[in-house]
Write a protein that binds this DNA or RNA. Structure first.
Lengths: 245, 245
DNA sequence: GAGTGGTCTAGACCACGCA
DNA sequence: GCGTGGTCTAGACCACTCT
């Protein structure tokens, strides 16, 4: 992977610790180390890559801030595992008025394969025509629907996902576990919308109920878009929480 | 501020670099260095505080990630200045459909002083009864209203703010410049709402228009709440952008 | 006690901005 | 050419975890 030939001083080369970052990020997304497994120690990686331990440390620290790994003093460095709970915490942001988190279940309404439309080809960077999977779900809390979700993913990255039995909870743990896709961030566009007849029926809410519409594009560590999702949230009893930094 | 007496090895003491962080953060919020002014160099600070340059560096790096300072190679370390443009970029998140940023103007509808209600006393941590300033504004783009804002701030922290002449643009530059209040982050609760008669009139939109309601609490570096703001955004033509990490 | 990550130090050299 | 921050190294010691 890394040879001592491309050391520092090379004009225009990225800093060493970023090269280490890239190398480790690649090996993680290629499955060299699986979720929840530990990486070699800082010294072992340093020796293997021919750099100092401090340089490896800096790369690992950045991987930790990007939530790709978790470090535990005295134990080691572990590939972040997307559990149902923390994935829900990070990416499903509906909260009760008192700030407590919801833990919704899901109900699949439909799932089918179809050709990507133009927007999806752009988002996913398809060179030519290719298929996507579209999943329609309902998110449910206390037996009441709180959100509809339309999820679109490239078929090529998620073969046979329709046969999976765990499509009712957070999908990102499934993406990571079964398909080696690590979602690390997402950009969202929010707007306020009025429930039409179909949305109202799905959410068991009156037509005309104000809904919070969230258009999300989810990315891997490499910046690759791997999911396009439109959610419509019933915020009459819940709020969507955001921290601005 | 920092004495060499409380060096490392003290049981339960915070790491040195965090003490340095606190010390520098305090001196900045006390106005020892003003916005856009430069701090002493890493070596100068290290000598002054009796720690190594690497320790100062680590503290400065964290202050930079928290957007309290900005570092420029070859020039120095500067106290972040909240300009109208970047404050707008960070805290006013309405964008056009193509992702481009709005640069709204503001119109003051009312401004008055009154006693804090119970919620405000809790948010601002008032021990006893105290006054707040409430500002009602309209944000305008291309001569069209796009948002209403109700802004509540503690009177004690912002004396005579009603006499300021720059209440029509981003307020955080004003807070920083005139009152030494550095807003560094905010938590927001979003929900979808229907425009009532009053909101509709202010926004020149039909009654029943879906609005994105944003309840924000803004904090300083010390975690102190210094502003409570409710905005209602007309998202028929614009979206509210969020990055999820 | 052995092994891991966390803190702190000291020093070398590079890249950048400016006079 | 000097002063700044940025990178990289080497080594010491601390705090935590497990056996």
């Amino acid at each position: 992977m890394h040879s001592t030939a491309d050391m520092n001083n090379t004009v225009g080369s990225r800093p060493l610790y970023k090269q280490v970052y890239d190398s480790l990020a690649n090996r993680i997304s290629e499955g060299d180390w699986k979720p929840a497994q530990s990486l070699p120690s800082e010294f072992a990686l340093a020796a293997e890559l021919g750099v100092s331990q401090g340089t490896v440390r800096k790369a690992l620290t950045e991987l930790e801030t990007d939530k790709v790994v978790e470090r535990r003093q005295g134990k080691g460095t572990f590939v972040s595992e997307h559990t149902d709970e923390d994935s829900n915490f990070r990416f499903f942001r509906l909260t009760r008025r008192d700030g407590s988190r919801l833990m919704p279940t899901g109900k699949i309404e439909s799932i089918h394969r179809r050709p990507a439309n133009r927007l999806e080809r752009t988002v996913f960077g398809f060179e030519e025509s290719d298929d996507v999977i579209e999943i329609c779900r309902l998110r449910i809390v206390d037996d009441l629907p709180c959100a509809t979700e339309n999820i679109v993913i490239p078929h090529r990255l998620f073969p046979d996902i329709e046969k999976s039995t765990s499509l009712t909870t957070s999908l990102y743990p499934l993406y990571q576990r079964e398909f080696g896709i690590h979602v690390v961030n997402a950009e969202e566009q929010l707007r306020s919308e009025i429930a039409n007849k179909q949305q109202a029926k799905r959410l068991k809410a009156p037509i005309g109920t104000p809904l919070l519409r969230v258009d999300r594009i989810a990315h891997t560590i490499h910046g690759q878009a791997v999911e396009r999702r439109t959610s419509r949230l019933d915020t009459r009893n819940y709020s969507y929480s955001v921290m601005v930094n």
